[in-house]
């Protein structure tokens, strides 16, 4: 079963504070290990919201707002898609990721399959 893990942003993420070399090394090793065990299917971190935009659609009309957006902790800072045996395994991965990255909140969502809607 696949889960999507999304970790939330903080002030450092929103200020584009670069990760320390130690953090980069530790995170790299963790991601490599997860990829090598066949679990990590995809994963990326995103830059601060000032580099992004938001599209809102009202009555079919698209409106574009450029970043930055307020409230860093309501923004996503990155995601991973994991192919795991159980939700508990996905949770354990989230804890390990948080320990390395310092993330304070991670949402874990099951990826929908066609068979879920039948």
């Amino acid at each position: 079963m696949r889960y999507m893990l999304m970790h939330y942003s903080n002030e450092d993420n929103e200020n584009d504070v670069p990760p320390t070399p130690e953090l980069m090394a530790e995170m790299g090793a963790y991601m490599e290990e997860a990829a090598r065990s066949g679990v990590l299917l995809a994963g990326e971190g995103v830059r601060s919201s000032r580099h992004g935009a938001r599209v809102t659609i009202t009555d079919g009309e698209a409106r574009v707002t450029d970043g930055p957006f307020a409230e860093a902790k309501e923004l996503i800072a990155g995601f991973a898609i994991l192919d795991v045996k159980s939700k508990d395994e996905a949770i354990e991965h989230a804890k390990r990721f948080a320990r390395i990255s310092g993330a304070t909140q991670i949402d874990i969502r099951r990826v929908a399959e066609f068979s879920d809607f039948e």
Binding site: S37, V39, K85, S86, D88, E89, A90, I91, E92, H93
Partner: peptide
């Protein structure tokens, strides 16, 4: 118990 299940899987 759930933590152990997750740890064991990994």
């Amino acid at each position: 118990r759930r933590t152990i299940d997750g740890v064991w899987a990994i």
